[in-house]
Amino acid sequence: MELDRIEKLLEKYLEASTSVAEEKELRTYFSQESVPTHLEQYAPMFKYFSLAKEERFTKQVPLKTRRDYFKWASIAAVAVLMFGIYFGNEYQKQKEAEFAYNETKKALNLLADNFSRGTEKVAYLNEFENTKQKIYNNN
């Protein structure tokens, strides 16, 4: 008799000595519509267990995107940094060279000024020479 067997299985079930297969049998039995009234109280239990197994995890897991984003972002950041250092250095050098050029120009200008002032003074000497020649010629 099936009912007999189910009752025995239920007893074993409560003592937790049923096998997985026997428990499956119980679940199938209680999933049907008509269950004897004295066993009706067990139905929700087994129905609930079957139902609970249907629940699914539907949320998406952002696996790849996040990893990639960080990887590429770090590569880009390093590249920008390298370019920055390289071109920054270049620019610095150019500035320095310009500064040195200007300084040299200033120094040379100063020299040139002083030289020309020197030649002006020497012009007086020429005058002296002329006069000396005149005197020599007269004598």
Binding site: Y13, L14, E15, A16, S17, E40, Q41, Y42, P44, M45
Partner: peptide
């Protein structure tokens, strides 16, 4: 230990269900 725990859990569920019923 599993058997004891499981049996206890099943009995509790059944009892409470009977009460509600």
């Amino acid at each position: 230990a599993i058997r004891v725990t499981l049996s206890r859990a099943r009995k509790t569920v059944r009892e409470k269900l009977m009460q509600k019923h």
